[in-house]
Design a binder for these strands. Structure first.
Lengths: 127, 127
DNA sequence: AACTCCACTTACTTTTTCTTAGCGGCTAAC
DNA sequence: GTTAGCCGCTAAGAAAAAGTAAGTGGAGTT
């Protein structure tokens, strides 16, 4: 079933301060943007969408990232409850990262972002 | 009409190197993430969705941002062809920023991000 | 014995962002 | 008529974030 819930407002509904010339972004959108506004967060998140992966696989699957930042971003996602971290006690030891239900639910947004990029980003840059 | 185009793949289709343990994000998604991965880009972009606005209005409508970065992000959006910059020759002088068709087309993605944040981010953080 | 792998961690450099101040040219308030 | 403010920036320096390189330890591989 294709959802047809009404699109949520992008901007904050304001009360007595109405009449301002520029609306402020809604709280929720503002918070996601702050999240995605950190370098690599979106790429790591998107890469985790393919299912559970090990740290070293992520490192290889994300060209340009380095250990320190990858680890930092993973800790942040885990702290937000968007991913889980599982230590696999084999030799050599491995750590598996996996999105939670909350983290995985971002997929429709990633789909839309991908669609947009395909249709509009290339043109914008190649222009 | 509600589009029902098939969702684009999140990951790169790979050729001979198949069998890798971790897929790389698709080029388009990777590029948007690099864009949004700069602090404030998403917030400025989202704020521009409400229509043409002046520089000073943007500054007031985006709590926490400062002149220098706001200007930097606007220049970037203009350079990418996602927004236009128009000098209004009144006193005091004003500059109007406005999304292009390419820039405005991001809306469905912002809607999905907002929806996700409403349903999953609050819980994740308040947990 | 020397080397690799794994998931980090530490120490250091470079880049990005933030803060503060100021520009010129105009208007509005006291 | 001096002071203060608004406008869209910009320069300079401080702070924060990200990038780089090397190291950890224990076990496996050559």
């Amino acid at each position: 079933m294709v959802s047809s819930a009404p699109p949520p407002p992008l901007f904050a509904e304001h009360g007595a301060d109405a009449g301002g010339v520029c609306e402020t972004l809604s709280e929720p959108l503002s918070r996601v943007m702050t999240l995605l506004g950190k370098r690599w967060t979106g790429v790591v998140w998107g890469t985790l969408m393919q299912g559970p992966v090990y740290f070293s696989d992520l490192r290889r699957g994300i060209p340009g990232i380095n250990d320190r930042i990858l680890n930092e971003r993973l800790v942040e996602l885990v702290d937000l409850g968007l991913a889980t971290r599982t230590v696999i006690d084999e030799r050599p030891i491995r750590v598996r990262y996996q999105l939670t239900e909350h983290g995985a639910a971002i997929r429709p947004a990633l789909d839309e972002l991908t669609r947009w990029a395909q249709e509009h980003l290339q043109q914008a840059v190649d222009r």
